[in-house]
Write a protein that binds this DNA or RNA. Structure first.
Lengths: 243, 243
DNA sequence: GAGTGGTCTAGACCACTCA
DNA sequence: GAGTGGTCTAGACCACTCA
């Protein structure tokens, strides 16, 4: 048995939810691992299974946990590889969906521009890593990305050949730097392409492009990465259900 | 006491949820009205209050119901007036948010083009109402909309002066035609403006515009309205939180 | 067959609303 | 103070997974 340490004025299921978020943020369990059974948690915190279930319900609704009947409840690994592809459709000539290849144009450590420092919650002049890359379908560039990371936990990225590790950065962040992206905020805008990105994307002047800015955070809510991606509007389509 | 009529193999809370959706679709309760208390529903369907709460939880999560502690549980009236403004920001010179005025350019009954018939789930050559309107900030057009409705329940729209009733159509649908919009699917795309819309929106050639297609449905899921709105990308901004 | 989450019950007591 | 939803308990039994 083990007392909860949170704000005792909150309902017990909320206290348990907060406690579990903290455990996850502190890497007590890794993505894909099972948390203790509902009965075990009820015994540990001296509450009924119904109250444990309510705390777990909240975390499932928040996308942090995933239930599997008969097997257990697991830390959900966010599926960010498909994130851009909720916005952009890339297909081969035969109509098959494909993940564009990645080519890194530049990766360097620089003092953070003030907008980047602010987005990442860093002090002025903190060191950041700046990565520029393009995503290609065959020889055709389809996305241009600039990516900013705090230097300290991501230093290792400067010391490896990223292009050899495939186009998906978040698994690299996890394995190379121990940083797990758990949530993100994205902002969509659209504009006529500027000269720089027109050249990068091989687009005529004034072509419409969609811009996606993304701030990615870990389980504790700490900003890990700020990214801006641009792609031709022709590939863009996004669907929303509302009530 | 009253037996549930749904699929008896489903959990009882699901059966109750399905039953309540049906009641709402059949206008047993109107938007804004309270449904019976949890205790009354438990007595009516001979189940425990916990099971009723679980059915209500589902409908709250789906956005159909709204709980108010101490007062009751209410049919949620979807807040569609703000729907476009989740995508477009319109502000006066002083930076205040405003709802653009509406000017209807044309409203006529026509045979449904096949794409419209398909979207609205109508037979080929069914009669539909076609409305074209622009939204204005002062003298500046900011949105161009084409709106398609099945003629039958919306006939009354052809017989009134819509411009005098303000820019929000959904309250008019409800009061004039008895049709309540309960949910919608929206698809965002972006393009360079074409000649027709460039003229309507007073935009130079090749300006980037964002296009929102929306299919609106009633509580039973029946399509009520299909709409396509175009606005200058400069006003467009959309934010998404993902896990 | 042991262990997991899923459904359901029948209650107790609390927090809030409103006349 | 009567009536509402919110929290929590302690159980029973079911559906599913996996060795």
């Amino acid at each position: 048995m083990h007392p909860l340490t949170g704000d005792a004025r909150l309902p017990r299921y909320q206290q348990l939810r907060d406690h579990m978020v903290m455990q996850i943020a502190n890497n007590r369990w890794r993505p894909g691992e099972a948390i203790p059974t509902e009965a075990a948690l009820a015994a540990e915190f001296d509450m009924s299974v119904g109250t444990v279930r309510k705390a777990v319900d909240v975390l499932v609704a928040e996308g942090v946990l995933e239930r599997q009947q008969g097997r257990g409840t697991f830390i959900r690994r966010p599926q960010f590889q498909s994130s851009l592809f909720r916005f952009f459709r890339f297909e081969t000539a035969n109509g098959e969906r494909v993940v564009p290849e990645s080519r890194i144009l530049a990766i360097t450590a620089v003092p953070a521009p003030s907008a980047v420092a602010q987005a990442l919650g860093l002090g002025a002049q903190a060191e950041v890593i700046r990565m520029q890359r393009i995503r290609l379908l065959g020889a055709q560039p389809v996305l241009a990305e600039e990516i900013w990371l705090p230097r300290q936990p991501f230093q290792a990225l400067l010391e490896v050949d990223l292009d050899s590790k495939g186009p998906l950065l978040y698994p690299i962040y996890e394995h190379l730097c121990g940083q797990v992206v758990a949530s993100a905020e994205e902002t969509l805008t659209a504009e006529a392409v500027d000269a720089v990105h027109g050249r990068l994307l091989h687009l005529p002047a004034d072509s419409p492009v969609v811009v996606i800015e993304r701030l990615a955070r870990d389980y504790a809510g700490k900003p890990l990465e700020w990214r801006r991606s641009r792609g031709h509007a022709q590939h863009f389509r996004y669907r929303i259900d509302i009530r």
